[in-house]
């Protein structure tokens, strides 16, 4: 990371700490804000948050690795999370999965070269009666068919 980037990051975190407070319970909202903006939480940001909240960097790393919506490696602009649990699976998840992979040209767990899409599996998203379901960033899409899924993604492209 360049010094300028580091300074900007420090300033950003200082503002977040100002906003959410210095207690340990502010950690998650701060991490979520950084994840939303930068699509990941850089190593330097983890150490800065640790310094400002007076906890240890490893504790922050521990929290990030615990939650699947937080990550230490950069993700695409749109994160596509297809539900992989049994109800969606029985309602045709496999066909949807193949269609999405073909449409985006990547496998699950990968990010497109233009950093636009990241494709992941999610465990139950609570839409078992309307499966197959997927989440794109913070929007839920249900009753997917391969065609419908492709259409949703091509609109984002």
């Amino acid at each position: 990371m360049l010094v300028l980037e580091k300074n900007a990051m420090t300033e950003e975190i200082e503002q977040l700490v100002e906003k959410y407070g210095r207690s340990r319970s502010s950690l998650l909202p701060i991490l979520q804000d950084i994840q939303r903006k930068h699509k990941h939480i850089p190593d330097f940001a983890q150490q800065e948050i640790a310094r400002l909240l007076d906890i240890h960097p490893v504790e922050i790393y521990s929290v990030i690795t615990f939650y699947s919506f937080l990550s230490t490696t950069p993700k695409g602009k749109y994160i596509v999370r297809l539900c992989q649990t049994i109800a969606c699976d029985m309602q045709g998840k496999e066909a949807v999965a193949k269609a999405i992979e073909r449409e985006l040209g990547i496998k699950f767990g990968q990010t497109t070269k233009d950093n636009k899409f990241t494709l992941e599996y999610a465990n139950c998203v609570g839409m078992c009666d309307q499966g197959p379901a997927m989440i794109v960033n913070e929007n839920v899409y249900t009753k997917l068919t391969p065609e419908k899924a492709i259409q949703i993604l091509s609109e984002l492209k």
Partner: peptide, 10 residues
């Protein structure tokens, strides 16, 4: 208060 180790993952 050194904080080298924590539980990683889930």
């Amino acid at each position: 208060e050194v904080g080298v180790l924590e539980a990683i993952g889930r």
